[in-house]
Design a protein around this nucleic acid. Structure first.
Lengths: 147, 147
DNA sequence: ACCTGATTACTAAGTAGGTGAGGGATATTA
DNA sequence: TAATATCCCTCACCTACTTAGTAATCAGGT
């Protein structure tokens, strides 16, 4: 891009950001491969780690159809990484809940990265942290504008 | 993650970073869909924008096999977005060169994002920019450690 | 000059995981 | 209550990947 879009040239941050985004995209690919999961399965575990959700919501966060996420849940369930549970209030719904095995898989694969990120984070002074956060939120917003 | 890995809790930057990475992963998916390209095809154009490369190098940056990238180049070439050219020095090689049509496609789809990012970037003082760059490079390194 | 091994790019066959359409059960709204 | 919407699933199909293997070319050692 930088070659023909002059005003974006020579910005070290923009350059670093692009590199970050590229690497961040490679990581799930590689980690999933090592874990014997598809990237969708890995992303699902990562999101289910936070809180349970149904196949349709999962489809939304993955950016796929519910037909696809139904298969994702099937495969994760067959490996024991998640469980389907009936929703207490709405009998149409299924809650997909991550199991201990699923949690361990996520932690085992991603903890080293989070440790490294925490270290980078810890090196920031409060003032610097505020600057970085503002930048990250701004960049996120700029990307979201495309969608 | 934050729920069960206490030392990572309450870091606004880490939280913002995760959000950024998630959005950054959604963007190519969505942009490619709108452009009628696969994500691999879009990523290929993005990298070929910088400089030509052969199918094998393309495969490496995409994280797929050369068999797959061969197909990617086929599809991009059939749409007129790239051209195969014989490498001047090494007759085993093919150089895949982006065409004007390919450049336009990339610019048209991604320029708004880069404009937004440049704006965020421009809001930084030189000192702040240095902080942000250091953080981004550090985060990139932490991610790369997994691979 | 001639092997040997590495590298590049491709093809062929098989497969994983996606889409789109649609259906049954349940919930929500008019 | 009737109509409509939502949730989750199945089915048939398709795209884009993988693995395996080939031909051409290059580079190094003898």
């Amino acid at each position: 891009m930088a070659d023909v879009v002059p005003q974006y040239r020579n910005s070290a941050t923009l350059d670093a950001l692009q590199e970050l985004v590229d690497v961040a995209a490679q990581v799930p690919h590689e980690v999933a491969r090592k874990a014997g999961l598809s990237t969708s399965e890995l992303h699902s575990l990562r999101h289910l780690f936070e809180h349970p959700m149904g196949p349709v919501e999962l489809a939304r966060v993955l950016g796929v159809t519910s037909a696809a996420s139904s298969g994702v849940v099937d495969r994760l369930a067959s490996r024991g990484h998640v469980e389907r549970r009936p929703h207490p209030d709405d009998r149409r719904r299924t809650e997909v809940v991550i199991t201990e095995s699923g949690r361990l898989e996520v932690i085992r694969r991603l903890a080293p990265m989070f440790a490294g990120l925490a270290e980078v984070d810890a090196a920031l002074s409060p003032a610097e942290r505020a600057v970085v956060e503002r930048y990250l939120r701004g960049a996120t917003a700029a990307m979201q504008a495309l969608m």
